[in-house]
Design a protein around this nucleic acid. Structure first.
Lengths: 229, 229
DNA sequence: CGGCTTAAAAATATCTACATTTTTATAAAA
DNA sequence: TTTTATAAAAATGTAGATATTTTTAAGCCG
C-alpha cells in the first residue's frame, strides 16, 4: 500500500503559492519581501516561509542578503536576452539529440500533441483560453524535447524554463488574445513538425531556435510599456 | 562604503558544510538525515538546518518526503551515465558557441590556465595535490566555457557540475594519484587547446565530448568496488 | 541655516526552545 | 505469521527571545 501524496507540509504550499505569484507578476521585480507581510499574506509562521524562500533563492526567483531579508529577483532586458538565447541554444541541442535518438513512439506523441494544440479553437473564456493553449503548447514542445531521452538535460531545460516564465507570461498575454499571432504560431508549429518528422536535423534545429527567439522583441516592448525595467 | 560580505547567517554555513560533506562522500547515498543528528553534528537549531536542507533539495543532492524527513540522494550507474552524457553534450554546445563568440582575451585566458595546469608538478602533499590540480583543472575548463558569453548557459553548466561532483570526486582520487593518468590528461588538454585556438569547432567539440566521457568507466568500477550501487 | 555625524528608537531578520502532529518501532494477540 | 495496540522517535509548526539593520531625530561644525 503506497500513499501517493502524503499531505504536503506548509512550506511546500507556501513555495508553490509564492512562486506562482512571482511568475504571474503579483510582485514587482526587486520588491522587498517582508517576513511580517508574507506571514499575514500566506497565513503562516516564519519557519515554513523561510523554507519556501530558501528554495526560491536556489531557483534564482528570489534574492537574499544575510540579515537583510529577501527580495523578488530583478528583471532586465539584458537578462531577457541571455535567458532566451540560452533556452534557444539548449532547445536546439535537445532537438538534435531527439532526432538522433527518438523512436516511433516519440514521433507519435509529437503528432498527437500537435493535433491537440491546433484544435484549441473552441470558444473559451479568456482565462481558460490562456491556460488551455499554454498547457497544450508546453505539452507539444515537451513531447519534442522528450526524445533526447536524458532526464538531466530535460531537468536543465525545465530549470531555464522556470527562470524565463516571468518574461514568458508577458508574452503569452500578448499572443493568446491575438488571432493573428496565434495563426502565425500555428504555421510555425506545423513547419517545425514537418521538419522533425522528416528527421531533417539542420532545418529543424534552426527553425526551433528561431521559433524560441520570436517572443523577445514583443517582451521587450511590454517591459518598457509597463515600466518593469 | 560597502560591506562586501555581511556575516553569513547560520543557514548558509550549514548549507555549505552539509553540501561539502555530501559531495565528499561523508554520507552514504540514500542515508537518512535525522534532524537530531544534524543538530548535534553541525551544532545548530532546526530552523537553519531546515533551510539548508531545503536548498539542497532544490539542487537534488537531498530528497525530502513530507513528514518523513530528508535523505541523501541516491547514486546509480544509470544516473552517472545520463549525467555525464548531459554534461558532455552541454559542454560541446558551450564550446561551439565559445569558438564562435570568444575574443582575444578568451584565447589568452585559456592559454594562461592551460599553462598553470600543466605546471602542477611540484611536490605537494597528497591532499594538497588533489586540491591544487582540481582547482586548476576546473579553472582551465571554466576559461574555455566562459567564451560562450552567456551567464545562463554557464549557470546551467555549473548546476550539472554540482550534480556530478559526487561521482567526479571518486574519479579525481583515482586520477590525481596516478602519474600515468595525469599524463594522459595532460595530452588531452594540450590537443584540446590546440584545436580550440585553431578555431576548429568540429574537432574541438568532438574532443571535448570524448574528454568528458572518459571518467565514466573508471567511476563505474569504483562505484561497484565500494558497493555504492 | 544647511549639510554632516552621531545616537537613540523602531522595525526587521534570525535563532532557540517548546508544543503538536505524524511516523516508525515494539510487543502482544489472533 | 499477520494484525493490532501501544510507546518511542522524529518531523513540523508556533511563539517568544536576541541580534542586526534601518529609520528618525538631535547635536555639531562650517
Amino acid at each position: 500500500m503506497t500513499r501517493a501524496s502524503p499531505r504536503p507540509n506548509l512550506a511546500i504550499g507556501a513555495y508553490r503559492h509564492l512562486k506562482r505569484d512571482i511568475i504571474r507578476g503579483a510582485y514587482t521585480p526587486g520588491e522587498k519581501l517582508r517576513m511580517s507581510d508574507l506571514k499575514t499574506r500566506y497565513d503562516l509562521g516564519v519557519g515554513p516561509m523561510r523554507e519556501a524562500l530558501s528554495q526560491l533563492v536556489s531557483e534564482r526567483l528570489v534574492t537574499a542578503v544575510s540579515q537583510r531579508g529577501y527580495r523578488v529577483a530583478e528583471m532586465s532586458i539584458k537578462e531577457l536576452e541571455d535567458l532566451y538565447d540560452a533556452r534557444a541554444q539548449l532547445e536546439g541541442l535537445v532537438l538534435e539529440l531527439a532526432i538522433a535518438r527518438g523512436g516511433d513512439d516519440w514521433e507519435a506523441q509529437i503528432l498527437a500533441k500537435a493535433h491537440a494544440l491546433s484544435k484549441v479553437l473552441e470558444v473559451h473564456s479568456a482565462d481558460d483560453m490562456l491556460d488551455i493553449w499554454d498547457a497544450r503548447h508546453q505539452a507539444f514542445h515537451g513531447a519534442i524535447a522528450a526524445g533526447c531521452d536524458s532526464p538531466h538535460l530535460l531537468q536543465t531545460r525545465a530549470w531555464l524554463f522556470d527562470q524565463a516564465e516571468r518574461y514568458r507570461h508577458l508574452w503569452l498575454c500578448q499572443t493568446v488574445f491575438s488571432a493573428e499571432a496565434l495563426d502565425a504560431k500555428r504555421r510555425e508549429h506545423a513547419a517545425l513538425t514537418d521538419a522533425i518528422l522528416a528527421r531533417d536535423a539542420a532545418t529543424a534545429c534552426t527553425m526551433m531556435r528561431e521559433h524560441l527567439m520570436t517572443p523577445v522583441p514583443i517582451i521587450k516592448e511590454v517591459l518598457r510599456e509597463q515600466g518593469l525595467v
